[in-house]
Computed example of a mutant assay.
Amino acid sequence: MFVIIICMAAVLFMPMLAKVPLALMMHREGTYDNRHPRAQQNRLEGLGARAKAAHDNCFEAICFFAPTVLLVLALDAHTVYTAQLCIAFVLLRLLYLICYWCNWHVARSSVWVLAMGTIVAHFVSLLS
């Protein structure tokens, strides 16, 4: 269960990691507009725009991962397999960020599918 909880924390804090390149791209514009950061982020192009999209997608991933893991924990269905699925999800999401930042769009989409596959695998495991 410890590994699953650590993975949950990693996914919940991943948007902060994804914010680092976004903040750097915002600073490259000359200043970080703390009064209107979303307006500034929406003006970004290239790496800045990809960093914003990667950051936003981290929040979206929480919506899939957290309820799934909470269901596994609530049903006391955590096993070595579910822990491995959680680890795989976290590693794939980190790879997803790298793919987004590097503009490797085909790899990014493939990694996204694999990460979502871990979510599906949790439910298959729960239903069997």
Rank of each mutant, 00 (worst) to 15 (best):
A61P: 01
R35C: 09
A115W: 01
M16G: 12
K52S: 11
D56M: 11
N42M: 15
R108V: 02
F2N: 11
R28L: 07
V69H: 04
R108K: 10
G46H: 04
N103F: 06
A9G: 05
F89Q: 05
V11L: 02
V72H: 03
S109D: 06
A23M: 14
F65C: 06
A51D: 02
A74L: 13
S110K: 09
L70Q: 08
Q40P: 11
H55T: 02
M25N: 08
A23K: 10
G48Q: 01
P67Q: 05
V11F: 01
N103G: 05
I6P: 03
E45H: 14
I87A: 04
C7Q: 07
K52T: 08
L70E: 07
D56G: 11
E45P: 09
E60I: 01
T118W: 02
C58L: 06
V20F: 12
M1T: 11
W104Q: 12
L95W: 00
R93K: 09
A115C: 03
F123R: 07
A39G: 13
L17S: 06
M25D: 08
F65T: 07
H55A: 04
A10E: 00
A39R: 15
A39M: 15
N42D: 15
M1Y: 14
C63T: 14
L94I: 03
N103L: 04
S110C: 12
H36V: 00
L91M: 13
K52L: 13
N34V: 10
T118V: 06
R50C: 00
V124K: 10
L71R: 09
C99K: 02
S128F: 09
A115D: 01
F123Q: 05
Y100H: 08
E45A: 14
H55C: 03
E45K: 15
V106K: 06
A23P: 07
V80L: 15
L44N: 06
L94P: 04
L126H: 03
P15K: 03
C7N: 13
S128K: 13
Y100G: 00
V69L: 13
N103K: 10
V3K: 07
Y81W: 13
V90C: 05
M14H: 11
L92Q: 05
L22I: 03
L91G: 14
M16H: 14
Q40Y: 10
Q41P: 02
F89L: 00
A83L: 07
A54V: 03
Y96K: 00
N103C: 08
L85E: 04
L91R: 06
L22S: 03
L71G: 08
R108F: 00
E60F: 04
C7T: 09
A18L: 02
A107F: 07
L22H: 00
H55R: 03
V69P: 02
Y96L: 00
S110Q: 08
